[in-house]
């Protein structure tokens, strides 16, 4: 997880997405405890309130849950839920941008498809 104050996204969104990435790659397995907001804020030099805001997004969307007095845990089924969410965003985040850049460069749809095939062959 990398936090950048000059990034397009607010810091609390970066925190939430960074934890999501860690869950997707399996770095934070389901039912495991994630670092506390204090640990996150010290690691990235950010205000604890910001870290909490980021973590709360994941609690509200059912990706994590709080165990009182113990800490934050990854919910069972969180990984699949996130995969589904990221799949839904894939078109907006990658395909739309890919087409816009291709149009700027005069790359035809057929050429894009060929490039994708080439990418898979590597």
């Amino acid at each position: 997880m990398l936090i950048n104050t000059e990034d397009q996204r607010p810091i609390f969104i970066q925190i939430a997405e960074g934890i999501e990435d860690a869950i997707l790659t399996g770095a934070y397995p389901e039912e495991s405890q994630i670092p506390s907001t204090t640990e996150i804020s010290i690691r990235y030099n950010i205000n604890p309130a910001t870290a909490l805001k980021g973590v709360n997004i994941l609690v509200d969307s059912g990706i994590m849950y709080k165990k009182r007095g113990v800490g934050m845990f990854v919910m069972a089924g969180a990984r699949e839920k996130l995969q589904q969410k990221r799949r839904n965003q894939f078109f907006e985040n990658y395909i739309v941008k890919l087409i816009a850049e291709a149009e700027r460069l005069g790359i035809s749809p057929r050429e894009i498809i060929m490039m994708i095939e080439r990418g898979y062959e590597r």
């Binding site: 936090i3 204090t38 804020s41 010290i42 030099n45 950010i46 205000n47």
Partner: peptide
């Protein structure tokens, strides 16, 4: 500072010219 603030919340007013460095810390 962040660790101290987490464990013993107090008010901190930081006057600085190094804005990017504190941008994430200040509320």
């Amino acid at each position: 500072l962040v660790e101290r603030y987490s464990l013993r919340p107090a008010t901190y007013v930081i006057s600085t010219h190094l804005i990017e460095e504190v941008a994430g810390i200040i509320e």
